[in-house]
Simulated assay, not measured.
Amino acid sequence: MLRILRELHKKKLISMGSIKELKILFMSALANHQLINDYFCLNLLASYGVFFGRCLSGLLLIAYYWTSILETNIRNESMYDLISFEKWFKFMFISIFSSISVVIITMTCKRVSQNVTNVIMNCYLLQSKIRYNSYEYKEIRALWTFIFENQLTFTAAGFFDVHPSILLSISASSVTYFLVLVQFN
């Protein structure tokens, strides 16, 4: 879809074939978007839940590790608890490594939504290059309206839209729950 828009921008020539091809490409992207939202939304929601759990358990392990270091320092023991540090390090490495997929999926969903916004802007710019009363202008206007009304937004089972700020929100809420758990011991 973006390739066709780049070609239209370079040639400054708009034909009905290219507009129809752009419409067909957007319709296939819309159908794929619906399939992804229908079949993978629960998996995506579960992935965000696991991401939250990993963040919270990692913070709890950090607290456990630091309290064990403080206890060894209070007892004036010269040896640190390396076994608990090794367990914590392995857990954190596995947690971060397995959370990469959630970050990749989130960024991919953002990129697809951003590309649809770019298509809307390019359709709007293409309108200015065409005569107002022409058939091509009406077709681009109809395509622009259709794309604008049917923007591709990915959701996690309909609970929230998927975008990068979700990762920050999940991390912040895990820190909040961690602080509550530490206060109530």
Score class of each variant (00 low, 15 high):
residue 1 M to W: 05
residue 4 I to E: 06
residue 4 I to Y: 02
residue 6 R to E: 15
residue 11 K to I: 04
residue 13 L to F: 13
residue 14 I to V: 15
residue 14 I to K: 01
residue 17 G to Y: 12
residue 18 S to P: 00
residue 18 S to E: 09
residue 18 S to L: 07
residue 26 F to M: 09
residue 28 S to M: 14
residue 32 N to K: 13
residue 33 H to D: 08
residue 35 L to G: 12
residue 37 N to M: 06
residue 38 D to R: 13
residue 41 C to M: 10
residue 43 N to Q: 08
residue 43 N to H: 08
residue 43 N to P: 00
residue 45 L to D: 03
residue 49 G to Y: 02
residue 50 V to L: 11
residue 53 G to A: 14
residue 53 G to R: 02
residue 54 R to D: 08
residue 54 R to P: 02
residue 54 R to L: 13
residue 57 S to H: 15
residue 58 G to E: 01
residue 59 L to A: 08
residue 60 L to Y: 04
residue 62 I to G: 03
residue 63 A to W: 05
residue 65 Y to M: 06
residue 66 W to T: 15
residue 72 T to A: 12
residue 73 N to W: 07
residue 73 N to I: 09
residue 73 N to L: 14
residue 75 R to T: 05
residue 75 R to Q: 10
residue 77 E to M: 10
residue 78 S to K: 12
residue 82 L to D: 14
residue 84 S to Y: 01
residue 84 S to N: 06
residue 84 S to P: 00
residue 86 E to F: 13
residue 87 K to P: 00
residue 87 K to L: 08
residue 90 K to V: 12
residue 91 F to G: 03
residue 95 S to L: 00
residue 101 S to H: 09
residue 102 V to D: 00
residue 105 I to G: 04
residue 109 C to F: 07
residue 109 C to K: 01
residue 110 K to R: 10
residue 111 R to G: 01
residue 112 V to N: 01
residue 116 V to Y: 02
residue 116 V to P: 01
residue 116 V to S: 02
residue 117 T to S: 14
residue 118 N to T: 14
residue 119 V to F: 04
residue 123 C to K: 00
residue 125 L to I: 07
residue 125 L to R: 13
residue 128 S to V: 07
residue 128 S to N: 12
residue 129 K to R: 15
residue 131 R to K: 14
residue 134 S to C: 05
residue 136 E to H: 05
residue 138 K to D: 13
residue 139 E to S: 11
residue 140 I to A: 02
residue 142 A to S: 13
residue 143 L to A: 07
residue 144 W to H: 14
residue 145 T to N: 12
residue 148 F to E: 11
residue 148 F to D: 08
residue 149 E to V: 06
residue 151 Q to W: 03
residue 151 Q to E: 14
residue 151 Q to I: 07
residue 152 L to T: 03
residue 154 F to L: 06
residue 154 F to C: 06
residue 157 A to G: 05
residue 158 G to I: 05
residue 158 G to H: 02
residue 158 G to C: 04
residue 159 F to D: 03
residue 160 F to T: 06
residue 161 D to C: 09
residue 161 D to E: 15
residue 162 V to N: 04
residue 162 V to F: 04
residue 162 V to Y: 00
residue 163 H to Q: 08
residue 165 S to P: 00
residue 165 S to L: 13
residue 165 S to M: 12
residue 167 L to K: 02
residue 172 A to L: 13
residue 176 T to D: 07
residue 177 Y to S: 08
residue 177 Y to G: 03
residue 178 F to A: 03
residue 180 V to P: 02
residue 181 L to S: 09
residue 182 V to L: 10
residue 182 V to P: 03
residue 183 Q to L: 10
residue 185 N to Y: 07
residue 185 N to M: 06
